[in-house]
Design a protein around this nucleic acid. Structure first.
Lengths: 138, 138
DNA sequence: TTTACAATCTCTAGTGACTAGAGGTTCAAG
DNA sequence: CTTGAACCTCTAGTCACTAGAGATTGTAAA
């Protein structure tokens, strides 16, 4: 049995965030001492590790709620869980693609005017003002 | 002179968002009709296009405020603007890197259990519960 | 000119996933 | 028994919008 601070140290999840997760229903309400402080055990630690890992992977709290629900009903959880993971993967891939496009355009912009002042006009500002320069449609 | 709705149509920025930008100081306060409705001209359109383009590139509203300020003082704006753009680029690159790592792990997870049910336990759930499976440190 | 109705106005509140702070209580070591 | 770090609850703030209520205005057809 350990305190919320200890749980925080072990999982690297901040104390107020743990309380927030409890409020959101991700964590079951913790046991309390007679003085109303939360106490956790190994199960609580594992649950929070699961949540943290999923958050790190970009799953929304809602998605994590679904995954937790699936954990509680092990029959046919596999297909449903995979579906959520695949959706998350698609999301991540879409973000990567968009960011890659932005990266290309920013490189182009930032190269326009560096040290050696071709200072007639700022290329960065001009690029932002004029969409026509753009390689990508966004 | 055109209405906020017309401006919205031309820039693809939603009407409440335009009002929000005005409130945040990104747009100068628009002229009004006798009946208090906003009217815009070409200058307003160009300014909003600039803002929209910068937002699409992931610049924060604060960064855009800086860029707009730079526009108003064209002397030595180039270096400062480039600095902002380079910072933005670094940010985008960091995000890409992180997402790429997540993508790899999600691929590994989602492949674990697909159609042909090796249904002893759900690999997706197991992966989330057990950080040790992880290739990446996060 | 009147009427209808879409578009506009302001204002408040909600989103997601936390983070910060106030003001009060409890735990554990010395 | 005292100290003080850690805990408690509650409210409000963050960012960049988005949604909705309720009132007013603009404009085109009858």
């Amino acid at each position: 049995m350990f305190s919320i601070g200890e749980l925080s140290r072990r999982t690297k999840v901040k104390v107020p965030t743990i309380r927030y997760y409890e409020e959101m229903g991700l964590l079951v309400e913790a046991e309390r001492t007679s003085g109303n402080q939360r106490r956790y055990d190994k199960a609580g630690l594992e649950r929070l590790s699961f949540i943290r890992h999923a958050r790190d992977l970009g799953f929304s709290i809602e998605a994590i709620l679904s995954l937790i629900e699936l954990q509680e009903h092990p029959d046919r959880s596999c297909q449903a869980a995979t579906k959520i993971a695949v959706a998350q993967l698609a999301d991540v891939r879409a973000k990567v693609k968009k960011l890659k496009a932005l990266e290309r355009e920013l490189v182009r912009m930032a190269k326009g005017c560096d040290g050696h002042g071709v200072s007639e006009d700022c290329y960065v500002l001009a690029s932002l003002a004029d969409h026509e320069h753009c390689e990508n449609e966004h």
